[in-house]
């Protein structure tokens, strides 16, 4: 297979961009204080991240079981089609988000201060 020099440059640059943005994002991460639950882009719950909470979020037979424990939040179970939200790793840093697209549900961490969240793209 013949590669052009540009191919190599492209692949190496992409790895460098990924590494730089990884360290940039890593350096901006800080443990948040609040768990926001949004349904259809509307805030429906605001919960403390340092709490010990189990909450069943249910609308029209669509449910997501939210757990907050040890300063982390995650979805324990849900009846959505792809289970992407259930498989998502636990979140704790400001701006980190679990999305359940089929249920239009977003779980996001904030701390009220300037965070990655307010970083305008």
């Amino acid at each position: 297979m013949k590669l052009k020099r540009n191919d190599i440059i492209l692949i190496i640059s992409l790895f460098i961009i990924a590494a730089v943005s990884f360290f940039f994002i890593q350096s901006m991460k800080k443990v948040g204080g609040t768990v926001l639950v949004l349904k259809n882009n509307q805030e429906i719950y605001k919960l403390p991240l340092n709490g010990n909470i189990k909450k069943r979020i249910e609308f029209d037979n669509q449910y997501n079981q939210l757990v907050i424990q040890d300063n982390k939040a995650w979805i324990e179970s849900a009846n959505c089609s792809h289970q992407v939200c259930v498989k998502h790793p636990k979140i704790q840093y400001s701006g980190e988000t679990i999305v359940c697209l089929p249920h239009h549900l977003v779980i996001t961490i904030t701390d009220g201060e300037a965070t990655f969240d307010s970083f305008s793209y």
Binding site: N41, G95, T97, H104, T108, F116
Partner: peptide
């Protein structure tokens, strides 16, 4: 769509 810049992580 979900209005969450956090996905840029």
């Amino acid at each position: 769509i979900v209005n969450t810049p956090g996905l840029l992580f």
